[in-house]
C-alpha cells in the first residue's frame, strides 16, 4: 500500500478518496495544471492582433510583394524548431545522466513540438519560395539542413515510440545529434552559397516589420509552450499510471 500511496501522490488528478495523501504544494499543483491553459489563452489573445498587424499595418515589401507576409510566421517557426531541438537535446543529456523521467518527458514533448514547427517551416518555406523564387525547393544548404534536423527529430520520436525497452538511450543520442545540427542550420547561409538571405538581412529589417514580427513570434512561442506543457503532464501521468498499474496488480496477474 505504501508504494501505491507514493505513486498516487504524483497523479495530477485526485484519486481514490482516503488513499491520496494531501500534498503540501496543492496550490503549486493547481498553478502547474492551469499554466498551460494560461499560456494558450495568452497566445489566443496575441494571434488576432499579430495577424491584423501583419496584414493591415505592415507595408508591402518592395521586391517580394505580398508573399513576404509569409515571413512573419515562417521565420518564427524555424526559430522554434531550432529551440525545441536544443531543448530536446539538453533534456536528453539530463535524462542520460540522471535517468530522470521528467527530463525524458520534456525531451519527448519538445521533440513533438519540434516536428510540428518543423513541418510548418518546411511547408510554408516552399510555398513562399514558389511565390518569390519561382521554385518551391532549390535544395540550398539551409533547406537541406532544416529538413535533416526535422528527420532526425522524427527518427527520435519513432525510436521512443517503437523501440525496445533500452532504446531510450539510443533515442536520447539522436536528440543530442539533432541539437548539434542547430548551429549548422544557423551558419549554413554563411558557410555555403544559398538562396536564403544571410543572417545579416533579418536584423536589418525596418522597425515597422519588427513591430509585426515580435507579436507573431510571441504568439507562436506561447502556443508551443502551452501545448508542450500539456504534453509533458500527459507523459508524466502516463508513466505514473503505468507504475500504479504495476503496483496494484497482484503478482500472479502481472505475467
Amino acid at each position: 500500500m505504501g508504494q501505491f500511496v507514493a505513486v498516487c501522490g504524483r497523479l495530477p488528478y485526485p484519486c481514490q478518496a482516503g488513499y491520496c495523501p494531501s500534498p503540501s504544494g496543492k496550490s503549486m499543483d493547481k498553478l502547474k495544471s492551469i499554466l498551460p491553459y494560461l499560456l494558450l489563452l495568452a497566445a489566443l489573445c496575441l494571434f488576432p492582433g499579430s495577424v491584423r498587424t501583419v496584414f493591415l499595418e505592415t507595408p508591402i515589401e518592395r521586391t517580394m510583394g505580398t508573399a513576404f507576409k509569409i515571413f512573419f510566421f515562417h521565420v518564427p517557426m524555424g526559430w522554434l524548431l531550432m529551440l525545441m531541438a536544443m531543448v530536446s537535446g539538453i533534456a536528453s543529456i539530463v535524462q542520460l545522466r540522471s535517468g530522470s523521467k521528467t527530463a525524458a518527458a520534456v525531451a519527448q514533448a519538445s521533440a513533438e513540438i519540434g516536428v510540428l514547427t518543423g513541418a510548418g517551416v518546411l511547408l510554408t518555406g516552399p510555398i513562399w519560395g514558389d511565390a518569390t523564387w519561382g521554385k518551391p525547393w532549390t535544395g540550398d544548404a539551409r533547406q537541406v539542413t532544416t529538413a535533416l534536423l526535422w528527420l532526425v527529430v522524427v527518427a527520435y520520436l519513432l525510436v521512443r515510440r517503437y523501440g525496445a525497452g533500452s532504446s531510450d538511450r539510443l533515442a536520447a543520442g539522436l536528440a543530442i545529434f539533432g541539437a548539434v545540427n542547430v548551429p549548422v542550420i544557423y551558419y549554413a547561409v554563411k558557410i555555403w552559397k544559398t538562396t536564403h538571405p544571410t543572417t545579416d538581412v533579418v536584423p536589418s529589417l525596418p522597425s515597422s516589420m519588427w513591430a509585426a514580427f515580435w507579436p507573431c513570434l510571441g504568439a507562436l512561442l506561447l502556443c508551443s509552450l502551452g501545448l508542450m506543457a500539456i504534453r509533458i503532464r500527459q507523459l508524466c501521468l502516463a508513466d505514473t499510471l503505468d507504475e500504479l498499474w504495476v503496483a496494484t496488480t497482484p503478482e500472479g496477474e502481472q505475467a
Binding site: 508573399a67 510566421f73 511547408l123 510555398i127 513562399w128 514558389d130
Partner: peptide, 8 residues
C-alpha cells in the same frame, strides 16, 4: 500563397 501558408 499567403492563404495556403497560413492555412497549413
Amino acid at each position: 500563397h499567403v492563404v495556403l501558408a497560413y492555412g497549413v
